[in-house]
């Protein structure tokens, strides 16, 4: 069932991304499956679950895009920078259009801390755990 939720979220994200941009989305991530499990376990409208999971997917993929920059080739470097920026911007567009803005109060600091870790050269694996914790907190507060 949560695989379906993940697939539905992926469909939403793919529909949002401008077709001509051809942004590759690598969502084979254990943490996203765990988030799908978590979000799926709450009693709330399925459309909200999909929106929240889509935002989590976008932040995960967006952070990863900027962790794997193609430094040797200006064209590919430019693409990877823009792709990451675009995916992060899409979180805000999606959350605003679907009235899930309060989620952004949780996500902006997570995204910020991921940058602090990246600049320090620390592992960003902790970001997934933080995302799960904050999303759970959000669901506890606003799932009704």
């Amino acid at each position: 069932m949560n695989n379906n939720l993940l697939q539905d979220a992926l469909n939403v994200v793919n529909e949002l991304i401008h077709m001509q941009l051809h942004i590759e989305l690598d969502v084979k991530d254990r943490a996203l499956y765990e988030l799908a499990e978590l979000i799926g376990s709450y009693r709330m409208a399925r459309s909200r679950k999909i929106t929240i999971l889509s935002c989590c997917m976008l932040i995960s993929v967006g952070i990863r895009k900027h962790r794997k920059l193609q430094l040797g080739d200006n064209e590919r470097l430019a693409r990877s920078i823009l792709d990451g920026d675009y995916l992060i911007g899409m979180i805000y567009r999606l959350a605003v259009s679907r009235k899930e803005q309060k989620l952004l109060v949780k996500l902006s600091p997570i995204y910020k801390r991921a940058q602090l870790k990246a600049i320090d050269g620390s592992d960003v694996k902790g970001v997934a755990a933080e995302l799960k914790r904050e999303v759970k907190d959000y669901l506890d507060q606003y799932s009704a």
Partner: peptide, 16 residues
């Protein structure tokens, strides 16, 4: 904050 951040996608589209 949030609605302005939503503009990022369009700024990126200009760069693309």
């Amino acid at each position: 904050g949030t609605e302005l951040a939503a503009l990022i996608t369009e700024l990126c589209e200009g760069e693309y």
